[in-house]
Design a protein around this nucleic acid. Structure first.
Length: 472
DNA sequence: ATGTTC
């Protein structure tokens, strides 16, 4: 695949074959040579063939290979011009995302109680594959309420405050959720997993703010140097996974009926304005709300332990998803259009002044939370005026080794010792899980963020370094 | 990511 360098941080894939629009890759030469670039670039080109795709098939600097779409892919389809929705453009972990909490504790005060805090968090925050969660739902009826209301439902039940909801994307719940579109099997899988981290790259980290790049934005977000924070990264567990599986199956079956053909069956799609398309979006919104409630409950569990151990409270900074499709209005060619924006391993980055922002953030823009790999930095970014890719940016470091490669190349015990030497306490991780998540398996998150900023997608606000990790 | 191959 030939890449044309338009700027040091933006590369173009010319239209070829059935591509309806070009590919636009935000990256650097160095990032493009880290890991396998050819396979995700082919996926960028494949996505460009989707009916109704507008402007370009975009990839963020943390791009890597995924199911159908690349992870780090952004694609917007025009709803009124035959635009499609594709579950592969959201991914299996629907509304997987990050919640950041901040305390008024400094790093020195934490040091003597860090071990005790990590022990407590390891006990109070359910993690790992399979069972164990903060809640066990009474049944499908309670599940329907949660799928409709997301974090709001958790807050109604006493797990948080209205102030928390103000700092959640969509004020804690995606609208137009259709709980009936979540299958019985998905509901069954989800009943005993609300309030659990899961496994893989999901984690809870205790972090310290090491750098502030933008004082005004950091202050609006409630962040300042040397502050102890807690970051939670998790998703919609088995319920989201099952929901994706179910709807991919239906949508794939109905494609001939709509006369739709795609270069890769993992790009199965349906017109947004079709029964299958609407059914998927309703189910996706419901699964997204499960993910939002999940993070609200984990916040409550972590806050309680943090309060007991340190005597301080944790305040909400923001909660943002990086796997979601949204129908949004954007100006294209001087005309307002209704677009279905798929962000898969990509984060919305609302600019200052956007109407969807709460009053406290209107002046500076929306916080973008970018978790790094284990033992490295995480970043807080914000949106910029005229942000490219429909106001989207990166979501993390991005894999450069497959799970299998990483597991083979890493000795878990050595990694654990190395992290401890760096001052990072790790709890809960299985040997296999730890090895798969080795920092060497990921791109350099600082290089990713530099490319995202250089490409005009966002700007940096703060950097955080981990001191403790709870993993599945 | 995921009851890591319905």
């Amino acid at each position: 695949m030939e890449l044309i360098e338009e700027t040091p941080y933006r590369f173009r894939v010319e239209r070829h074959g059935d591509m309806r629009v070009p590919g636009m890759v935000f990256a650097s030469r160095a990032l493009l040579s880290s890991g396998e670039a050819q396979k995700p670039l082919e996926q960028v080109a494949n996505v460009a063939t989707l009916p109704g795709i507008t402007e370009a098939s975009f990839a963020m600097p943390d791009m890597h290979w995924g199911y159908g779409f690349p992870i780090g892919g952004v694609a917007a389809t025009d709803v009124r011009r035959g635009g499609v929705v594709s579950p592969g453009g959201v991914g299996f972990d629907i509304s997987c995302g990050v919640r950041l909490l901040a305390s008024d504790l400094g790093r020195d005060a934490l040091r003597p109680i860090l071990e005790q805090l990590m022990e407590g968090l390891n006990r109070s925050v359910p993690h790992g594959a399979g069972r164990g969660a903060v809640w066990k739902l009474s049944g499908p009826k309670e599940m329907a309420a949660l799928l409709g209301e997301g974090s709001r439902y958790a807050v109604e039940q006493g797990y948080g405050t209205d102030t928390d909801l103000e700092r959640c994307e969509d004020y804690g719940a995606v609208g137009d959720a259709v709980p009936e579109q979540v299958s019985e099997r998905a509901v069954q899988r989800g009943l005993e997993q609300v309030g659990s981290l899961g496994s893989g790259n999901h984690f809870l980290e205790v972090q310290v703010v090491t750098d502030v790049y933008d004082n005004e934005a950091a202050e609006a977000f409630g962040l300042r140097e040397d502050q102890v924070c807690v970051m939670i990264h998790c998703g919609s567990r088995g319920l989201g996974h099952q929901t994706c599986t179910d709807h991919v199956r239906t949508i794939e079956k109905r494609m001939p009926r709509h006369g739709l053909r795609v270069p890769d069956r993992q790009l199965a799609c349906a017109p947004v304005d079709s029964p299958e398309g609407r059914a998927y979006l309703g189910a996706m919104a419901a699964a997204a709300n499960y993910s939002r409630a999940n993070r609200q409950l984990l916040q409550a569990a972590a806050s309680r332990t943090f309060q007991e151990t340190t005597g301080r409270s944790l305040e909400m900074v923001y909660d943002i998803s990086h796997n979601l499709a949204k129908v949004e209005t954007h100006e294209v060619d001087g005309e307002l259009r209704e677009l279905c924006v798929h962000r898969k391993g990509a984060t919305r980055a609302l600019p200052p002044g956007h109407l969807d922002l709460p009053a406290g953030l209107a002046k500076v823009g929306q916080p973008v939370l970018v978790p790094g790999s284990m033992g490295t930095s995480s970043y807080v970014l914000t949106g910029v005026p005229d942000g490219a890719a429909f106001h989207s940016t990166c979501h993390g470091a991005g894999r450069q080794q497959s799970r299998h490669q990483a597991a083979r190349a890493t000795r878990a015990n050595e990694l654990r010792a190395d992290l401890l030497k760096q001052g990072v306490v790790v709890r809960g991780a299985s040997a296999r899980g730890l090895a798969e998540e080795a920092p060497a398996a990921y791109k350099d998150v600082s290089a990713v963020v530099e490319a995202a900023e250089g490409g005009g997608l966002c700007r940096r606000v703060a950097r955080l370094a981990p001191v403790g990790v709870v993993k599945g």
